[in-house]
Each structure stands twice: as structure tokens, then as C-alpha cells.
């Protein structure tokens, strides 16, 4: 089945089974391996992407449901040569260690900061509660998001 969708701002057309998981479409035919699979049942959040701006677990979403909609992955936040402030802060403040939770964590943090540009620590923890990290103990992630919120200013925009 043909599925057309917008991925990181680009129009894309796929010919795949509609029940293919979004994560498989991203990592396979779309070539976006930044999105990681940690559990395949929506518990770990490593595969989090934005679907029309809302964070979802791409392991639980059939690609057919994304037709005509907009998907943002970690690759859409900023490129390695032009990191977004949020990505930069994760590097500077120790928010990334092994890096497997990082893409999903960044996408969830992006959704949080769009919604709540100046979150408290409690709001950050709540906003990231769907994303498991086994390396950091979360404190450095909290600090990274706080620093990004400062950089982004009151508009909460994540200029890439």
C-alpha cells in the first residue's frame, strides 16, 4: 500500500504494508536509524517520535496511521553539524551516556519544551517519565533540559 507522509519536513512516499510499525518504516525504507528500539512494547520510549507534534512510541504505531501526517525524529531536531540547542545541552551537561535512550529522550524533551518552555524539575521528570534511561540516573538529563530551556528563551522554540 502507498503511504504518503511528511518526515522531518520532507514529503515522503512509501510502498509498504499498512500495518508495518512506524519504527520499521523509519529505520528501513526511510533510512532513519536514529530512532532506537529498546523493548518493542511501548515501555522504554527509546523509539519516541513526534506525530503531528505529539510524542508517540513508534513501535506501537502502524505506518498506515501516519498517512497525511507529520513525523519528526531525532534527525529532524538538528544535524550533527548543526545541533539544536537541546541536543548541544545533552552533550555538554552529561545527558547522553550510552546514547540509546537519547534520541527518544530528546524528542520527548522537545515536545515538553514546546508545551512548557520553562519547566520546573518536577515538570521535566513528568514530561520524560515515558522514556527509560539506565545510564544517567536522570539528573544530568534534567540539567540538560533545564539548560536548553534557558537557551531557547521564553518562546520555547528549538531552532535547529
Amino acid at each position: 500500500m502507498k503511504v504518503t507522509l511528511t518526515v522531518n519536513g520532507s514529503h515522503r512516499e512509501l510502498d509498504v504494508p499498512p500495518l508495518m510499525r512506524l519504527i520499521d518504516a523509519l529505520r528501513g525504507p526511510l533510512g532513519l536509524t536514529g530512532t532506537k528500539e529498546g523493548c518493542a512494547e511501548g515501555e522504554c520510549g527509546a523509539c519516541t517520535v513526534l506525530l503531528d507534534g505529539d510524542p508517540v512510541c513508534s513501535c506501537l504505531v502502524p505506518v498506515g496511521q501516519c498517512a497525511g501526517r507529520s513525523v519528526t525524529t531525532v534527525e529532524g531536531l538538528g544535524s550533527i553539524d548543526h545541533l539544536a540547542p537541546l541536543q548541544r545541552m545533552f552533550v555538554d551537561h552529561g545527558g547522553a551516556q550510552c546514547g540509546i535512550c537519547t534520541p527518544g529522550m530528546l524528542v520527548a524533551a522537545e515536545a515538553l519544551l514546546r508545551r512548557t518552555p520553562k519547566p520546573t524539575e518536577a515538570e521535566i521528570r513528568e514530561g520524560l517519565a515515558g522514556n527509560l534511561c539506565r545510564c544517567t540516573g536522570y539528573q544530568r538529563i534534567v540539567e540538560s533540559v533545564k539548560a536548553a530551556a534557558e537557551l531557547r528563551g521564553d518562546r520555547g522554540e528549538g531552532a535547529a
Binding site: G34, T35, V74, E75, S79, Q87, R88, V91, A96, G99
Partner: peptide, 15 residues
């Protein structure tokens, strides 16, 4: 900053 950090936050690190 960790030297492998940029690739990890950009999603380009290859596991």
C-alpha cells in the same frame, strides 16, 4: 563534552 556526544544526539551513531 564527550567526543561521541554529537553523533549520539544527532542519531548518526551506528549501533
Amino acid at each position: 563534552p564527550r567526543v561521541d556526544g554529537a553523533a549520539k544526539v544527532a542519531g548518526t551513531a551506528l549501533y
